[in-house]
């Protein structure tokens, strides 16, 4: 996925992804957020996530590490955890082509639901979405239904666990821990 370079609005380390999502919503940002894992050592393995916005409402999501789009990309971003987030402003026309890619689109409230676990922010985002996105809004699962769907994806969860184990082992070495049984 190629995103044209935008105007940097802000860049910060966040522990809760509700922060950039609500900032984009409150400022009605048209542009995109670039999300990197907080730990640059893991950057190669984890990749970078991108979420685009139209008037503050998320439109598409992509993750470079997994080469995933849409809801899958959100899960990959969620798994990468707390991040360095840069929010860019970009002309709506520059995003138009990207926004036509159906496989990358996400329902308006889904990022808040999946990345922030914040149903109130998700609801606020759905309310801000234009009428043209009513159909997507309808399809969206909220609250625990989204959590159940996540839990039904055994492969993804196995992947999260495996990556965490690798990370834990790599860091043990870095931190000078002797692992049991080694």
């Amino acid at each position: 996925m190629n995103v044209p370079q935008g105007n940097l609005l802000r860049k910060r380390v966040v522990t809760d992804l509700a922060t950039p999502l609500s900032q984009a919503l409150d400022a009605s940002v048209t542009g995109y957020a670039r999300l990197e894992p907080g730990d640059t050592l893991l950057l190669d393995a984890e990749g970078v996530g991108v979420i685009t916005f139209e008037d503050g409402v998320p439109v598409v999501a992509y993750h470079s590490g997994a080469d995933s789009g849409g809801a899958d990309a959100l899960a990959d971003i969620a798994v990468a955890g707390p991040s360095r987030v840069a929010l860019y402003e970009l002309d709506g026309d520059a995003l138009a082509q990207l926004h036509d890619a159906d496989e990358l689109r996400v329902p308006p409230g889904l990022p808040a639901e999946r990345l922030a676990g914040d149903p109130a922010l998700a609801e606020r985002t759905r309310e801000a979405a234009p009428a043209s996105r009513a159909a997507e809004r309808e399809r969206e699962q909220d609250g625990l239904a989204a959590v159940e769907q996540f839990l039904d994806d055994g492969d993804r969860i196995a992947d999260i666990r495996e990556r965490a184990r690798d990370q834990a082992a790599t860091r043990a070495e870095e931190w000078g821990f002797d692992l049991p049984g080694t």
Partner: peptide, 13 residues
């Protein structure tokens, strides 16, 4: 929530 479950799994691993 999804982020909390995902983080909890990492804690376990």
């Amino acid at each position: 929530t999804i982020p909390s479950l995902s983080d909890g799994l990492k804690v376990q691993e």
